[in-house]
């Protein structure tokens, strides 16, 4: 199991272009395919991962590893998702490849970036709707939408720090739900 966790997150780490939320889609597909974590549990994990500092993707890996095989599982998953980045950055730094000025690389990122955007949009839709048994017009859904809209306003208009928004949303959740 440990080895399997390690391998799955190595795979995720290798293709985790765009970092963070784009990777959530990768992890969700991978984990759902293995039947490790069900949708409701995954949502809870994502909420916890969002509360901690650092990359939400790495935090999710830690929590999934922990839920599957305890402390060692968490270590295996975390090392797995980080190792490919570490190795690739070392290779790039050591070889002095000036990636940004290479035309082929520029064209590749020109095509890759919209895909990453797509992955993030899908993550928003997926986490917004999945794991909900109630209908779209329920009180709970209205509450989620309300908090969501409130957070967007706070961050964009009043430049509130994301962590502050998360704390406020927790309070709002207690009031509403």
């Amino acid at each position: 199991m440990l080895w399997q966790l390690f391998l799955v997150f190595i795979k995720v780490g290798l293709i985790s272009f765009g970092g963070g939320y784009a990777v959530m889609t990768l992890i969700q597909r991978e984990v759902a395919g293995k039947g490790w974590v069900e949708a409701g549990e995954f949502q809870e994990i994502v909420s916890l991962a969002g509360m901690a500092p650092g990359s939400i993707a790495t935090n999710t890996a830690t929590l999934i590893g922990y839920s599957q095989s305890g402390f060692l599982g968490a270590v295996a998953a975390t090392v797995g998702i980080i190792l490919p980045s570490l190795i690739i950055v070392i290779i790039l730094t050591a070889s002095f490849i000036r990636l940004q000025n290479n035309d082929l690389v520029k064209s590749s990122f020109y095509g890759l970036r919209p895909v990453v955007t797509g992955l993030i949009i899908y993550a928003a839709i997926h986490f917004g709707l999945s794991g909900r048994s109630e209908s779209l017009l329920s009180w709970s859904m209205a509450g989620t939408l309300l908090i969501c809209a409130g957070c967007l306003t706070l961050v964009t208009k009043y430049k509130v720090h994301p962590f502050g928004v998360i704390l406020l949303a927790a309070v709002a959740g207690i009031v509403i739900f």
Binding site: V46, L48, R113, I120, F127, C148, A149, C151, V165, A169
Partner: peptide
């Protein structure tokens, strides 16, 4: 309830990220 609220906040941060990336 607090976790549900945080979940909504995370969704809003994902939307924001998508918008910026877009």
């Amino acid at each position: 309830a607090a976790l549900k609220g945080i979940h909504a906040a995370v969704i809003s941060l994902i939307i924001l990220a998508a918008f910026k990336m877009w």
